[in-house]
């Protein structure tokens, strides 16, 4: 999850937080996958930045963490998590089994948590 400026938004990204107009009206719900249509809405309401889901989608993570975490650091976290969750299918696969879906979700959340705590540690200069 991370704030992204509007000109870096691409179709396919998922909203991590709902988007409100400056008058407080709900424009887009949390979890919404952005298509051209949503981009138009954002543009017409002159929204400057929005919160985007998913550090694991490689298209946006570099932008999200530019100046904070390097790509190699994120790759390292992902590789470690992939190895420990080796029995869980990769993120982009569909799976009918509920328990497997839950494991995929856990893996995704753990990635976010690890990235967030690494950022946190950096901010406080622990590393």
């Amino acid at each position: 999850m991370g704030l992204i400026e509007l000109d870096k938004i691409e179709p396919g990204m998922v909203l991590a937080k709902p988007v409100y107009s400056h008058l407080g009206a709900l424009l887009l719900k949390e979890g919404k996958t952005l298509t051209e249509k949503e981009l138009l809405i954002l543009e017409s309401w002159k929204i400057k930045e929005i919160d985007i889901e998913g550090v694991e989608s490689s298209e946006n993570k570099d932008q999200m963490f530019s100046g904070q975490l390097g790509k190699d650091e994120i790759d390292k976290i992902e590789a470690e998590i992939d190895a420990k969750f080796s029995s869980v299918p990769q993120d982009n696969m569909e799976h009918p089994d509920m328990a497997v879906k839950v494991m995929m979700e856990i893996k995704k959340i753990v990635k976010t948590i690890k990235v967030e705590s690494l950022l946190e540690e950096k901010k406080h200069g622990i590393r």
Binding site: K84, S87, M98, A99, E105, I106, K107, I109, V110, I113
Partner: peptide, 28 residues
Amino acid sequence: HSLELDYKVPVLNQKAWEILNLKIDSLE
């Protein structure tokens, strides 16, 4: 184990998950 990541993460049992009746959204 998912948070600790020191050993391989064990796989969730389907029946256990069903019986708890938790929402997938509550995981985060």
